[in-house]
Design a protein around this nucleic acid. Structure first.
Lengths: 344, 344
DNA sequence: ATGGTATGATGCAACGATGTACGAGGCGGG
DNA sequence: CCCGCCTCGTACATCGTTGCATCATACCAT
């Protein structure tokens, strides 16, 4: 086992094995026409010198790195952690490695992704923006393979994987209506005119309310604020404190729902008997909350798979894919997960 | 804005600006002796051609990539998601990018990390093994910068950042004892002789019990199983089903604690009145559980910072660091977070 | 014999950047 | 007036690998 601080190159191996550099390359790359004996001699030399290919040189020569970049807001948010988990897994199956970046809701950092600041060291990018939105649509016309995730922008000139926000939120409300609930509160509204999960889910939820013949009651709608548990708790409080008495709470993500549910239980409200609660995202927590939280499963694995696959196509890794194929906008399938918090 | 599918090289820029290739390189790298006019001409050419440096070529030439690899079991586990979050952040501040890998408790995949299979494309590695343990200690004598995380191995020939498992578990039990609890259950025991969080935490907990004059009651100890919520729920059930009546439950991580607490509440046991519960890791969930979960904060940010800093030193990025410095074993500071589940 | 194909190994020129050495002017001081 | 120093640029080699073209031998079918 050679402890080679100074790197051993193919040349060294070639010299040691008494063959040409190119033959070593051939061995390393599994070239077909090699005498077993030659191959063995080279492999012995590799072993004894502790040689390992210099991936950087190979990358330069081949014009690709085998790296893709995943840019998310932050990993501490369970939805993105689970998404990253899936992406890393799928990428691995495709022989790709994932490089991780967080933008932390910093618009400048988000824009830097599209400018490919500092040059690219990756073959493609999966990007989940937040504050780069509809107004920046033309900035997505970049010269590297890019797949967009989420709902900050629609109609951008690049492939896009998203979830069925509108339909999912509609299903949340319909679920409550089907349970006989009539005073349905909505938590997570964001007044901003930007397109986002918030606006889409609000749209779906209100449409479902309208269909059920229930006008939106302003006393039962709360927002804005970051979609974290403390916000859910605070907004729930606001609704109850003003005397409103919902019999159902539709939250636009699970963290809000967990926060709201926490607060309800703290105040002695029975979930789901007095008030049913449903979230959105179906993070692992939902299944282990007390009571277990009903939610909308947005199809995270499917999103990861679709995104990586589309990126692979754009990166030219898929034989038979026409590179001039028009950009695609794909929506993963959602599922309603009915659990204890809505009486399941 | 040039849409350059076929890459523009420094040569192209040089030609366009009427200077030599090296001058372009000098401009890009902020070389000092450049006539402002020359610089401007080159920059104009760069802009108009849409040139961006080829990081791979630079990497090859300079012998470094600016990449570090973080290997964790899996990101869906909140502890590792939050750790990754911190590592990515700290690395970013040091000008490094993080490449993520999951080994999913597959010993072969863990060993592959140490063999640097497929060559290295990174300047250093942060590795949190599980099944590569004490018996494999000599395998950590690798020829690339490596910093070990966690408690699967001690005394390995590489830098190591760990948490105070023994002392933390001791603090868990002491906390319960201080609350007047006398029948303290332990959840998360793993019979395996391998060193791990499980064995260390068990050691600390039993030592504290002994100090308090309470022998370990086998009826109150449960394991093994993956440290996930369902396991916590199941093990809690086992304890109660056999008729044991603890007044405190010390869980070796938060997921187990959340699962156990879930189950207690489901069975109508009052937390903390009837049974107090404490976890370990202080994941974000702990603060928002119902009731909020007491836990041991292992100093995650500190771990991330120490680990990245040590890696930077080994990578030769820190002036004044002697590369022959002996390997270091550092422990982050822990803190007891007393919350509702133990009556706070 | 002759040509054709399968096998086995090689040499050379890239990939796109940077380090080193050096050259050519301008200018101030001895 | 020459030397040496500061500026500003350039040429060339080099980082470690792989693609392409080529060469040599052996074997088979014509």
């Amino acid at each position: 086992m050679a402890r080679a601080r100074e790197s051993v190159t193919m040349n060294d191996v070639a010299r040691a094995a008494g063959v040409s550099l190119k033959t070593v390359s051939n061995v390393v790359n599994g070239y077909r026409y090699l005498r077993p004996e030659t191959k063995a001699r080279v492999e012995a030399a590799i072993e004894s010198l502790g040689y390992r290919v210099n991936v950087t040189a190979r990358n330069l020569r081949q014009g690709r790195t085998g790296l893709i970049k995943l840019v998310v807001p932050e990993l501490r948010i369970p939805y993105f952690a689970e998404l990253a988990d899936s992406v890393v897994e799928v990428a691995d199956r495709r022989g790709l490695v994932v490089l991780l970046e967080q933008h932390r809701y910093d618009r400048e950092r988000e824009l830097a992704v599209l400018r490919a600041d500092g040059g690219q060291q990756v073959d493609g990018v999966l990007f989940s923006p937040v504050y780069v939105g509809q107004d920046d649509v033309e900035r997505f016309d970049v010269d590297f393979p890019l797949v967009l995730l989420g709902e900050s922008v629609f109609g951008a000139p690049c492939d896009h994987v998203s979830m069925r926000n509108v339909e999912g939120a509609r299903a949340q409300v319909e679920h409550m209506v089907a349970l006989g609930r009539r005073r349905i509160a909505l938590i997570g509204l964001n007044e901003s005119p930007r397109v986002s999960s918030a606006t889409l889910r609000y749209k779906g939820a209100t449409a479902a309310l309208a269909d059920a013949g229930m006008p939106v009651d302003p006393d039962l709608v709360e927002g804005p604020g970051p979609w974290l548990r403390p916000t859910g708790a605070r907004l729930m409080d606001r609704i109850l404190d003003r005397g409103a008495r919902p019999d159902a709470v539709v939250c636009f993500n699970d963290a809000l729902a967990l926060g709201a549910m926490h607060q309800l239980i703290k105040r002695g409200v029975k979930v789901p008997d007095d008030i049913a609660v449903i979230g959105f995202d179906n993070v692992e927590d939902a299944e282990y909350a007390q009571p277990t939280l009903s939610s909308i499963d947005p199809g995270r694995d499917q999103i990861a798979t679709l995104a990586v696959d589309m990126l692979c196509e754009r990166m030219g890794l898929v034989a038979g894919f026409a590179p001039e194929t028009a950009v695609r906008e794909i929506f993963a399938d959602f599922r309603l997960m009915a659990r204890e918090s809505t009486g399941a």
